[in-house]
Design a protein around this nucleic acid. Structure first.
Lengths: 241, 241
DNA sequence: ACAAAAGTGTTGAGAGTACACCCATGC
DNA sequence: GCATGGGTGTACTCTCAACACTTTTGT
């Protein structure tokens, strides 16, 4: 028992085991009427895919490592990012223990090139990584415990969708109410009533009309934008009074 | 750029920086009509106090490390435990980077000895650690970024109190409705209406009368217990329909 | 009998939910 | 003119919040 002096993790006297720590980033995006995650194929372990990420570097913030992963492996920057969970079961990686600090990112399809991942220095083929968007509802075989991690990430995304404004991170800067509703339906996996949806979202005051319209097939739709100044988090319903 | 082969944190080829990783546990308890946290005085850095914890060991699950901390430093076992957040700013500890995986624990005053921490092997004076309960609303000087961590832990506890059953973890196995209401008031920091509270909590069906009563000053009160089989988490209020 | 805490109902307001038709445009 | 998606209102139910007095016990 060498807990002596170890309280609080002060550095001088604590000489603990030093594990490998990776930061992995689950990147969500709405494309083709589907919720997608970006996965990388490491070319190892058969044909299994993996959540993008890698070991942290010395003197690198965890969040900085996530931002670096987004840029290097996906060519993305300035995206919504939050810490999801830290996985550290000793058996999650065969061989030595690896601790994975997992982040959740949400990007708009507008920030991603039409072919898939945005063309950016260091992304895709340049570093020998193949990355590709997969439907969260139809995933390939995954490395290690990454299937569990994705399941948890989806649960969290759905949950936060209901009381925060994460949803807007997955949409382009301007959007129609139908597009917004569609996004919610895809993520939540259920249909919503059009009139109630519009009434409630307008009453919440978190979006405003841009004044523009978008023409498609049928009547042109009003465009809206997310109001950055709006209060993005709403009080949860109390189980108790 | 050595991201090659590092995706997903596979062990063989990834040779990253190995930081020191600690697991720290914020332990909440309701005592003396106040919400308390257990803090340890490392006897270093002047008179600053610290959240109990320490470096993880090889082949030790993160949660196992938290459970070990609870037992060794607080003499507690079988308590409510959840992962709170992982802190990894390089500057949070002077000297080398230390990553802190922080857990939140909630214990009933009944599980703690009347004097303070339960008498258990390895706790308290035996290991040279002084530990003591402090009011979360009136904290001593704290080591490193531990004040931030505690602030975040309180926010999370309050938030979860509203849509999960964490509250019961802070109460003894049986309790009166007045005690339950008092607990909520202390944690949320606001007064609640007695009739509305009782109606709602009984309607939720998550507690049941034990049949016993408790006599004090005035009319004896019905005792209730938490129903383990009850659905403990309730759907959050949707911002959107 | 009185102090002290336990227990108990009603009402008005606001939010949630279910539901069907007309409107503006492109072809 | 018709196909296509955009846009709108109402009635019912349920939940929430505000509010004060009676009951049971110990002293």
């Amino acid at each position: 028992m060498d807990t002596k002096g170890a309280i609080g993790g002060t550095p001088g006297d604590a000489v603990g085991f030093r594990p490998l720590v990776t930061v992995d980033v689950v990147i969500f995006c709405l494309r083709d009427d589907d919720l997608k995650v970006l996965l990388a194929c490491p070319g190892l372990e058969g044909r299994a895919w993996a959540i993008p990420g890698g070991p942290i570097r010395r003197d690198e913030d965890l969040e900085a490592a996530a931002i670096r992963t987004l840029e290097e492996q996906a060519g993305l920057r300035d995206v919504y990012l939050e810490q999801l969970y830290t996985f550290g079961q000793p058996g999650r990686v065969p061989g030595e223990p690896v601790i994975a600090v997992v982040y959740l990112a949400a990007v708009s399809a507008a920030d991603v090139g039409p072919g898939g991942v945005a063309a950016a220095p260091g992304c895709g083929a340049e570093t020998g990584h193949r990355v590709r968007w997969w439907s969260i509802y139809d995933l390939p075989p995954l490395v290690l415990d990454h299937a569990d991690i994705l399941r948890y990430a989806l649960t969290r995304l759905r949950f936060k969708l209901e009381y925060t404004a994460v949803g807007f991170e997955l949409l382009p800067p301007t959007f129609t109410l139908s597009e917004l509703q569609k996004a919610y339906e895809i993520i939540l996996g259920e249909e919503l009533d059009k009139r109630n949806f519009r009434r409630k979202i307008l009453a919440a005051g978190i979006i405003e009309p841009t004044g523009g319209t978008r023409s498609g097939e049928g009547r042109p739709a009003q465009l809206y934008r997310y109001r950055e100044d709006a209060v993005a988090e709403v009080k949860a319903r109390r189980l108790f009074p």
